[in-house]
Simulated scan of single mutants.
Amino acid sequence: MFGNTAAVAEAIADGLRPHFEVTMCPVAEAAGRPAPQVDLLVVGAPTHAFGLSRAATRQDAAGQTDSPVEIEIGIREWLDAALPVPSPRLAAAFGTKIAHPPWLPGSAAKGIGKRLRHLGYHLAAAPADFHVEDMTGPLRAGELERATAWAAQLATTEPTLPRTPR
């Protein structure tokens, strides 16, 4: 809606590209695709009302931008409709959230991580929040570099997937 989460996603993609073939897509496109068969699924979203957005929170945010906004489907709906993965796969979750006040609760990243684990994904790292100065942005200084570094660490950390029973 405001470009902050998309900018973080691009920075994460930059950190992954030396190690993986990277494909990015907005949630509206992902909803029409079959379950991804990937080495590492990275999912991100902005924090709305202390968690993952809903149609109502997306509608509220859409009123603050002239950009076209997808109201009907968000990460919450996409993950809630997803089928479980047949064998353990790696995933990572990130989100953007307001930096001030620092005690402000809620995290889209944590909600994404919980849903990914429920689907059978193994999280390659703890969910990560990247901070914006205000609801519409901008990103806090250094957050894009931090996102690239986080992704590079994801790519180079040796995964420890749970063993599948024989």
Score class of each variant (00 low, 15 high):
41 L>A: 06
54 R>Q: 06
36 P>V: 02
131 H>S: 11
106 G>L: 07
125 A>H: 09
33 R>P: 07
45 A>T: 11
102 P>F: 07
32 G>R: 08
148 T>H: 13
68 P>I: 03
78 W>C: 06
19 H>T: 08
11 A>F: 10
7 A>C: 01
138 P>F: 07
129 D>H: 05
94 F>E: 06
159 P>E: 07
39 D>H: 14
20 F>G: 11
122 H>L: 02
103 W>I: 11
125 A>S: 12
114 K>A: 11
75 I>N: 00
91 A>L: 02
17 R>M: 12
11 A>K: 08
23 T>Y: 01
2 F>T: 00
5 T>I: 04
103 W>A: 15
137 G>T: 05
131 H>C: 14
58 R>H: 03
61 A>I: 08
33 R>Y: 12
54 R>C: 01
72 E>A: 15
33 R>G: 09
53 S>Y: 01
46 P>Q: 03
139 L>P: 03
85 V>S: 08
40 L>C: 12
112 I>V: 15
67 S>M: 07
102 P>G: 10
137 G>D: 00
33 R>W: 04
47 T>L: 09
141 A>P: 08
165 P>H: 13
110 K>R: 15
97 K>S: 08
76 R>M: 00
83 L>V: 13
17 R>I: 03
147 A>S: 08
135 M>L: 15
44 G>I: 10
54 R>A: 00
133 E>R: 10
162 P>G: 01
136 T>Q: 10
160 T>V: 15
71 I>Q: 00
54 R>N: 00
75 I>A: 05
124 A>S: 07
23 T>Q: 10
162 P>K: 05
4 N>R: 11
154 L>S: 13
155 A>F: 06
89 R>Q: 11
13 A>Y: 02
91 A>S: 09
147 A>R: 09
130 F>N: 02
135 M>Y: 06
99 A>Y: 06
34 P>M: 12
116 L>D: 07
157 T>D: 12
122 H>D: 15
116 L>M: 05
158 E>T: 15
139 L>C: 02
50 F>Q: 13
